[in-house]
Design a protein around this nucleic acid. Sequence first.
RNA 1: GGGUCGUUAGCUCAGUUGGUAGAGCGCUUCGUUUACACCGAAGAUGUCGGGGGUUCGAGUCCCUCACGACCCACCA
Length: 975
Amino acid sequence: MAMEKTFNAAQAEGRIYEAWEQTGAFKAGANARPGAEPFCIMIPPPNVTGSLHMGHAFNNTLQDILIRWHRMRGDDTLWQPGQDHAGIATQMVVERKLAAEGQPGRRELGRDQFLEKVWEWKTQSGGTIINQLKRLGASCDWSRNAFTMSGAPGAPAGEEGNFHDAVIKVFVDMYNKGLIYRGKRLVNWDPHFETAISDLEVENIETPGHMWHFKYPLAGGETYTYVERDEDGNVLFEEERDYISIATTRPETMLGDGAVAVHPSDQRYAPIVGKLCEIPVGPKEHRRLIPIITDDYPDPDFGSGAVKITGAHDFNDYEVAKRGNIPMYRLMDTRAHMRDDGLPYAEAAARAQEIANGAAFTAAEVDALNLVPDHLRGLDRFEARARVIAEISHEGLAVMVPENDPRLGKAAHTPVAPEEGGDPRELSLVPLVESKPIMQPFGDRSKVVIEPMLTDQWFVDTAKIVGPALDAVRSGETTIMPDADRKVYFHWLENIEPWCISRQLWWGHQIPVWYDEDGTQYCAASEEEAIAMAGGKALTRDEDVLDTWFSSGLWPIGTLGWPDDTPELQKYFPTSVLITGFDIIFFWVARMMMMQYAVVGQKPFSHVYVHALVRDEKGKKMSKSLGNVLDPLDLIDDYGADAVRFTLTAMAAMGRDLKLSKDRIAGYRNFTTKLWNAARFAEMNGATGSDGTIPQPDATVNKWIIGETAKVRETVDEALAAFRFNDAANALYAFVWGKVCDWYVEFSKPLLLDGDDATRAETQATMAWVIDQCLILLHPIMPFVTEELWGTLGSRAKMLVHADWPDYTSADLVDAQADREMNWVITLIDAVRSARSQVHVPAGLHVPLLCTELDAAGQRAWDNNQAMITRLARIGEFTHVEALPKGCITVAVEGGSFGMPVADIIDVAEEKARLEKTLGKLEKELGGLRGRLNNPKFVASAPEDVVEEARETLALREEEEGKLRAALGRLAELG
RNA sequence: GGGUCGUUAGCUCAGUUGGUAGAGCGCUUCGUUUACACCGAAGAUGUCGGGGGUUCGAGUCCCUCACGACCCACCA
């Protein structure tokens, strides 16, 4: 059956993938030779809620290339797949789904029933991404598919893995070693999901904001002289004040102020340090007074130099409050609404005043006090802010400035000049409200403003486990590529902060800690153990679950069966390579390093390859809101998975973003077609059925292409070994298209069509072998089209996915003589074609070729390849002559001059111009070469081989120069 | 504010120990020859961001400036 003209990817890919799966081609250890080295990659587990985007496609293509390459080389290969339970994302998806279907919500269902719904959803929809990865061609061992929640209580049939056991065991062990602790700390709180999140889950984004300036009146109407001086102590400004000026971007937090702080060296406020001032909010009769304290934190040069201290709602203030034993009043509830609990405001404020006056207090007591005035309770924080501003301003306690104060910004107030009809009176005073961009924290998933909240949370004491993770990379035990990402890794780990690992969610690994009535902690793998530890007391379990990244951090050992000492763990751990995006170096890579060392005392992987982002063709990050997202599945539909994979591979230069365009993909789709047609040509000419034995042909061209194949095999192996994926792809592209298709297939035509039986047979055998080698070498990058051709071109013992990767070398297979000869042939053909084209010899015309001064090597090359040369250069009759006639196009090559006597059909002036142009280029090169060689320092200092090469090149160019000058001379005689 | 990376042909980018610049796309001209028009042949285009330094020799190493991107960060 004749082959189609193009590869039908849409029709073939599914069928081929199924064949791979049915034969167990991807199973751990498949195709391993006896005594094979293990090679293992852990997939960065996509979220169960995820669907394949371009980043996944890129990431998994690179992994698949390495996996397929190693598998074909006979290594004991495992690509471990799996999914992440993705706490927040999944809980969000399921909650939305319930809402959309009008079902009872999470709170109505209660914890157990809600979790049932989540598992139900996972069972139905969790496989989406797996099927999408299969469309890409990912050769994971799906029989080992893992899930970070497998084996958790309530997990349905099919989720019996022991990942949960591993997570719990790690928590208990780390708890017992003192690496995990619980404490009341200021943490990032997501008011939308009502949970704490870690620093990494906060995105600081510059947003337009305001800074308000308010007066905090001194207690009892006291006054002081406020003096500003310049550097030399000269008085710049002086006035009597009965207040201290405070700036804030968050006026609503004033309600929780515990003090006002100034720098100890700030002379302006020295007279009032230690005195009390009044928070200018709330019912007039219950105004709270707070102390003015000193702390190194305030910057005297910023704002007024005085800072309000709200320990429970700001990270800096928190530190100041801790240092100064300032009470931290929590103002908001879990949704970041103003608190609506506890004592009425009057009572709470009275107690707070006692504390401010020096009464002893406990953190718990302070936390219970609700200092939100009754009329603001229950309000959203932003609404409360607006009310506070309005009330203070109404009372006249905003700092007032002339309306043309530059701090107000241009847009705020533009006074109209009197001559233009403006009010001729003095500029009126307005509240000082600066409009300026402020960095605001947003939840990376919820996109709402994060609130610092004082809550009880669990932490990993990362400082205690960071050491080995740093040492391993410093020593090269684990390498991180490219180097820039290694630096990023160091920078973060060297400044590591405690990791908040508790989340106030339901979907996740519940923290294995129980409390008795007194609040004593019992950490154990099960409730029974905990009760036993407590001596049989009734216990309640901590409600919180663990940060998803806590479990992902155990991915390498967890997927291999730890804590059981499985054969897979013994064989594949530590794993070989991790391929991941730069965006999760902190989230995941660094934590895996720390956790694996903390738990099993070994590195999780030997190499980390960090890749960049896939962007759109303009360099913009792909995002749904911009509408510039390229869906890999659409691209696979349109161009085939191989084209998408090859494109990503060819663009995978280390450390650089890749800009993806459809044109580029189409170009590589064309490459698959090119390969397809080369194979089709081979098939049409009986050049199939290689058994893998390297042919030993006589014809130079056949020897040559075998040598070229060996060269590219070495290049590909070196490139892949160094994770230089783009080098591998480009080398193969250049070989298949530039060598095999452009030259070898063309050269083979006269041999296959007109050669004798022996020549035809050896050419068929060589071509069959070469095409097979192309398929093998390309298979890791383009698995589908190569597998299809592999099956089409012969009956094989094994599928291509398990074909033996070659190990022949250029030292074995490159025939230097053949190499020289074919390069000469190609140079001659190029030169003839170029000359013909430039002087406009009709493309179809077969012109006679004259030859003179041909040396022995040239003669032999000619004799061996005449049929190919005349065919490709469109030569008619070939004649040796003593000297080239005057009217002919001259082509100079090494060891001979060739001429085409076509003076009658071409323009002599044009040929003269052509020769002069060629000569011009040559002269330029000669100038450089002579310049260097005439420089005694060059000859003395440069390595001998460099000098020698320059001499040889000079000799060749001079020979060519002579021939071209001779040709010009003949042309001149012609007139 | 700190850090990292980038600036090479019209566009997108390669360029591994310093040896005298390449690819793909696009563009121009020609072409249907027994695989392929998702094709073939030929061709044009660069003071390798600016400046300085080291060297016989710098796109490549060092310094500096400019511009751009990204990451981290608590200036109220």
